[in-house]
Nucleic acid binder design. Structure first.
Length: 466
RNA sequence: GCUCCCUUCGUCUAGAGGCCCAGGACAUAGCCCUCUCAAGGCUGUAACACGGGUUCGAAUCCCGUAGGGAGCGCCA
């Protein structure tokens, strides 16, 4: 049997890492099993659903490369179908009209809470034959009153619920629109979902959904309820910590594969392996290995993984991401050799592509502003003399390569009886404006001879002027 | 309140009765490497929530306790 999974977000808030992880697990499982992955937008709550949230879902999934084999489907476009199924259930007696008013139900709930009981609908209208004048009824599902519902959950194991704990939930509001738990059931059945992988906040909904599925003559799918993600502080994900749109991570310069890698390891592991390519994830992932406990989001580890992915990637593959970040800084270049060179020399000193772009500004500007502290330390008397001494041999180099540049600086250091640092730092400051950069030889090669010499001259001039 | 779920280093996890005085990773401390910053290497600090059982033997099985979470809506 072909595995069919789905990701069914509701566009009432922005897609964040919690949602992404359940999407990832569903996607991975489908890929691993050679099945299909469906995207379904659960937008039945027209009040709270927003276009912006839908956009983030679609763009976020695209950015992450979690491509769906089917969809996106929208529940708001399936109302016809839901009405039809409600009709069937009414006809078969699996559903009935309930004429209790909201006020009556609220009162009932209050009484139950006062009595320290679990608030629930008691089935007042179950056997009602006549309509109640002036009240638009809702439709309720007639839940079995006895026996148990057993969920064989792939992550939690066997979970048993008593039917007596379940009440008759509303499947259609008085205005005729269907409710969430009902739509899910109809959709999962119609779309042939074989494995429902979702947040464990839905575990309590599962027995009702299974009962409805059975009432419709369907066999319930296999369920896997994955734990939620907590903020770094161990509390529920908040706006302040982690509950931001996934697209925020793109802006911050994270690689989609790194985010996915981080998320897949949050609650799942495969031996001691920490870094996974997409293919490795697919090959190694099994929903059965997912842990049961909620886990805290750790931004530092994400950062580390992002760098690991940058260091392992094909440099050319990172160029488009780097350019996107550069453009944000108002910089750009189509010099592929330069961009790849920057990637190679900067990726071990940047955790994100944003940081890489920021650290690489000096490659793209005509001139540089020299950091005052760095100048004071490295461009004082001795430093300036070095700039003078290094200028001529650099200008005279037949081939402008890192190797040749290294030779010049090394020879000079030897001649002065000093370490390479004595020579490299003044040059670095003059040329990059700061005391930190990739190795000086690689930096100069990428920068090019003209700009190197021009910056040495500029540094000497401004020192003379100042 | 009721029902359901969860509990190994600060964090993510390995561990399915002896291989564990608990392993890996991030973070953190120290050292090494070194032209800066990194990256990398090495070393260290650091955990089985608690209490009872079962067993020759328990992080692993059972029972409680505590703590955390979710659900209980004409929200999803």
């Amino acid at each position: 049997m072909t595995v069919v999974t789905r990701f069914a977000p509701s566009p009432t808030g922005l897609l964040h890492v919690g949602g992404v992880r359940t999407a990832l697990y569903s996607w991975l499982y489908a890929r691993r099993m050679g099945g299909r992955f469906i995207l379904r937008v659960e937008d039945t709550d027209r009040e709270r659903s927003t276009e912006e949230a839908v956009r983030v879902i679609l763009e976020g999934m695209a950015w992450l490369g979690l491509t769906a084999d089917e969809g996106p489907y929208y529940q708001t476009q399936r109302f016809e179908r839901y009405r039809e199924v409600i009709g069937q259930m009414m006809a078969s007696g699996h559903a009935y009209h309930c004429y209790c008013t909201k006020e009556e139900l609220d009162a009932l709930r209050e009484q139950q809470i006062a009595r320290k009981e679990k608030p629930r609908y008691t089935g007042i209208c179950r056997d009602r034959k006549e309509p109640r004048p002036g009240v638009q009824p809702v439709v309720r599902f007639r839940n079995p009153t006895e026996g148990t519902v057993v969920v064989e959950d792939l992550v939690h194991g066997t979970v048993t619920f008593q039917n007596s704990e379940l009440d008759d939930l509303i499947i259609a509001r008085s205005d005729g629109t269907p409710t969430y738990n009902f739509c899910v059931v109809v959709d999962d059945k119609d779309m042939g979902i074989t494995h429902v992988i979702r947040g464990d906040d839905h575990l309590n909904n599962t027995p009702r959904q299974m009962n409805m599925l059975r009432a419709l003559g369907a066999t319930p799918p296999v369920y896997a309820h994955v734990p939620m993600i907590l903020g770094p502080d161990g509390a529920k994900l908040s706006k302040r910590h982690g509950a931001v749109s996934v697209l925020q991570y793109e802006e911050e310069g994270y690689l989609p594969d790194a985010l996915l890698n981080y998320l897949v390891r949050l609650g799942w592991s495969h031996g001691d392996q920490e870094v996974f390519t997409r293919e490795e994830m697919i090959a190694a992932f099994d929903i059965k290995d997912v842990g049961k406990a909620a886990s805290a989001f750790n931004p530092e580890k994400l950062l580390w993984l992002n760098q690991q992915h940058m260091m392992r990637a094909e440099p050319a593959a990172l160029v488009p991401y780097l350019r996107a970040q550069l453009r944000r800084l108002g910089l750009d270049s189509d010099d592929q050799r330069l961009l790849e060179g920057i990637v190679v020399s900067q990726r071990e000193r940047a955790k994100t592509l944003k940081e890489m772009a920021q650290n690489s500004r000096f490659f793209f500007t005509e001139t540089v502003d020299i950091d005052a502290k760095a100048a004071a330390k490295h461009l004082s008397g001795a430093g300036l003399e070095l700039l003078v001494k290094v200028r001529e041999p650099l200008a005279a180099l037949p081939h402008w390569t890192a190797e040749a540049i290294h030779g010049v600086l090394n020879d000079l250091a030897t001649a002065l009886g000093a370490g390479l640092g004595k020579v490299a730092q003044p040059v670095r400051v003059a040329v990059t404006g700061t005391a930190v950069s990739p190795p000086i030889d690689a930096t100069l090669e990428l920068l090019g001879r003209e700009r190197t010499l021009a910056r040495l001259d500029a540094a000497l001039r401004s020192a003379a002027a100042g």
